[in-house]
Design a binder for these strands. Structure first.
Lengths: 212, 212
DNA sequence: CTAAAAAATTAAAGTAGTTGAAGAAATCAG
DNA sequence: CTGATTTCTTCAACTACTTTAATTTTTTAG
């Protein structure tokens, strides 16, 4: 999706029990729609686990995004690189979030984005044919993804509003308030690339905010 | 939705024949899902026509957004007003677009946005109870709105990417290329509020772009 | 644990975009 | 059609943010 998560705030502190990952997925889905046992089995059969080492790519600019991905553990960034080689981060994703490039996934066209692991990351992924199959067999999943998209859309609308309304200091403060975990977990350089400012300026801002 | 449109580029030049407005809605829906006669009737029965004079409000900051709206004719802006009284335009909508504040519509909470007509505007609107009823009776509509949301989400993702990647001149050029009709139709002041710059600076940019 | 690499800090000079103010042009309501 | 209002343009002074570059601190890989 490149989309965001179901609803809750931080599903951290997972130990690596087997079955753990799949149950996190089911929990995430059941936040919005109820599944019976058969449906759960079908869902689980259609998602494939995948591991990413830190700095490994889930998707590169120019490739087609063939799956949607649910993050079980770890953290990724979705970003573009402009003609001057600068990175611009569209979103981060951590435990419980869905990531991908929906445009490329749906149209089969080349993606403009990279998706890269910021930490060692475990995912569950579903291909487009399998997702279409899932929509057919379990129409409730159509509703689930509609709700997911609604939430993602709302979050992006908020972000656009902020990029228009707030200066860099305001955007930074909002970010750390909204995602306190990311504030710790993610290098400042990346946060700057998300906020649309230079790391140098972010460093200055933080100093001012500490003092003042 | 605050969402965007089905797919096409500009459904302009509508004359005001009766039935015209509803058929535009059905056309818009049938771009993505097929409806039979009974379903069309149900859809039509659930949407209420509404007229807005130029400068009239469809929604005000602080109100709850009780309907989603399909624009048949005319043009609106969705915007917030910051603590200094400045307007920030999240999106424009014209013929064939869906507008609303999805967050407020779904949660029942107060909206942070105003929606105001830039021209005399005709809409078709559906309330939340009626939309839920429609999802029940015509599950295909669940799919239709999922697709609509996907497109809207993708468009917003692109806009975020641009706000990070491009300077004001680049954003302006992209805007006029992507929405040539709006370039004509909408006052520069409003375009500036959409791009996140002052009207003064936009005027300077346009001059430079004409010359150079 | 250690060397090497990446990230964060600081400072000074430069640039993209803002502010305020004033006049010209376009649009609107009656 | 006309006066009133809103929008657009231009200019000069100003501010938020960038750039470059040097130094320090933190993180990483082996």
């Amino acid at each position: 999706m490149g989309a965001g998560k179901g609803q809750t705030n931080e599903n951290s502190a997972l130990t690596a029990k087997p079955g753990m990952s799949t149950s996190l997925l089911i929990q995430n889905i059941e936040r919005h729609v109820h599944l019976d046992v058969g449906e759960i089995e079908l869902v689980l059969s259609l998602f494939q686990p995948k591991q990413l080492k830190r700095k490994a790519f889930l998707l590169r600019q120019g490739e087609v995004c063939r799956s949607e991905h649910f993050i079980v553990k770890g953290c990724v960034k979705i970003y573009s690189i402009d003609e001057n080689g600068f990175e611009h981060i569209l979103m981060f994703g951590a435990e419980g979030w869905w990531v991908g490039d929906l445009f490329s996934f749906l149209t089969g066209k080349e993606s403009r984005y990279h998706i890269e692991a910021l930490e060692d990351t475990q995912l569950l992924q579903i291909t487009k044919p399998d997702l279409d199959l899932l929509y057919e067999k379990v129409p409730k999943m159509e509703r689930f993804f509609r709700i997911l998209l609604q939430n993602a859309f709302i979050a992006h609308m908020e972000r656009i509003d902020q990029s228009l309304s707030l200066d860099a200091a305001g955007r930074y403060q909002h970010f750390v308030r909204k995602y306190p975990a990311f504030g710790q977990r993610i290098p400042q350089k990346q946060i700057a690339a998300y906020l649309g400012i230079t790391p140098v300026f972010l460093s200055m801002l933080r100093k001012k905010l500490m003092e003042g």
